[in-house]
């Protein structure tokens, strides 16, 4: 696998991009939530989506594995390419999309099953043919929660603490070996120590997976991500709500130290939001 450097051009990025958003506009009913997003999410890196609340960053994230399908009235225009295939094409099965693009949610949400079954469930659905014991151990180790879990694999997932539950959920996602892992503010419900552990886990994970993370915590974006996309929201002309748009997408270092846009500078320097 080639390694990307910060100086590569957009053409190079295109060749190795995991996901490519082409003029994506997402609406709830008649009101647009986020519009005209172009973005190339690179393979094998951590990409952070940041911005003030209501800017549509979570909406964009959920659109990447078609979780938005579950929301009544949510529709998407434009296309999201995954290996050259439009995820919103007519023949695409959203269930298969989610088997390749996994997701970790804001609240830890283990199944009401044993820790072992939490991991095995997804793998079984995906027709995993290997050794389940080995898979469970490997996934839990990768998510850095093996030591806490190894003696109580048959206990309920709810017996773990919040931070451990979230790492269990990460392990559950790893177990299906997705190509991309989406994380929707995975630390917002956790204490600082658990947050730190999840961030360390992410550093390990990016060796094997492409990660896209939404975070409201700019320090976290700086700590974990290679690339950062800054979204903002502006009032709609004549409308009541706000519509989000992508302001700037670049290396995390550039976004935070030398942003090209005034709005980005204002946001990362804490002047608004």
């Amino acid at each position: 696998m080639t390694t990307l450097t910060a100086s590569q051009t957009s053409e190079n990025q295109n060749a190795v991009s995991a996901l490519s958003l082409q003029n994506v506009t997402i609406s709830y009913g008649n009101s647009e939530a986020v519009k005209n997003v172009y973005c190339e999410i690179p393979r094998g890196k951590v990409t952070a989506l940041i911005g003030p609340s209501g800017c549509g960053k979570s909406t964009v994230l959920r659109s990447l594995n078609r979780m938005n399908d579950l929301i009544d009235g949510c529709s998407l225009k434009g296309s999201i390419l995954f290996g050259g295939i439009d995820l919103y094409g007519a023949k695409i099965d959203p269930v298969e999309v989610r088997r390749r693009i996994g997701m970790v949610f804001q609240q830890p949400n283990p199944f009401p099953k044993s820790i072992y079954e939490n991991i095995a469930f997804g793998a079984r659905i995906n027709g995993y043919s290997g050794d389940f014991d080995e898979l469970v151990e490997r996934s839990l180790r990768q998510a850095a929660v093996w030591d806490e879990c190894k003696d109580k694999l048959n206990e309920s997932g709810y017996s773990l603490s919040g931070g451990q539950q979230q790492r269990l959920c990460i392990a559950r996602t790893i177990a299906i070996q997705p190509e991309i892992i989406l994380m929707d503010e995975p630390c917002s419900a956790l204490d600082p120590i658990s947050t730190l552990k999840i961030e360390e886990t992410m550093h390990e994970l990016k060796k094997s997976f492409t990660i896209v993370i939404v975070t409201h915590n700019m320090q976290q974006a700086v700590r974990v991500s290679d690339m950062t996309a800054f979204f903002n929201a502006e009032a709609v002309e004549g409308g009541t709500g706000k519509v989000g748009y992508l302001v700037e997408f670049n290396d995390t270092e550039k976004i935070f130290n030398a942003p090209q846009q005034q709005a980005t500078l204002d946001y990362v320097s804490g002047r608004f939001g």
């Binding site: 099965d93 088997r99 995906n126 027709g127 070996q177």
Partner: peptide, 14 residues
């Protein structure tokens, strides 16, 4: 990275 897909037989739904 080895191809992980080979062991996930139902990655494409039957």
């Amino acid at each position: 990275m080895s191809d992980p897909d080979s062991r996930y037989l139902l990655r494409s739904r039957t």
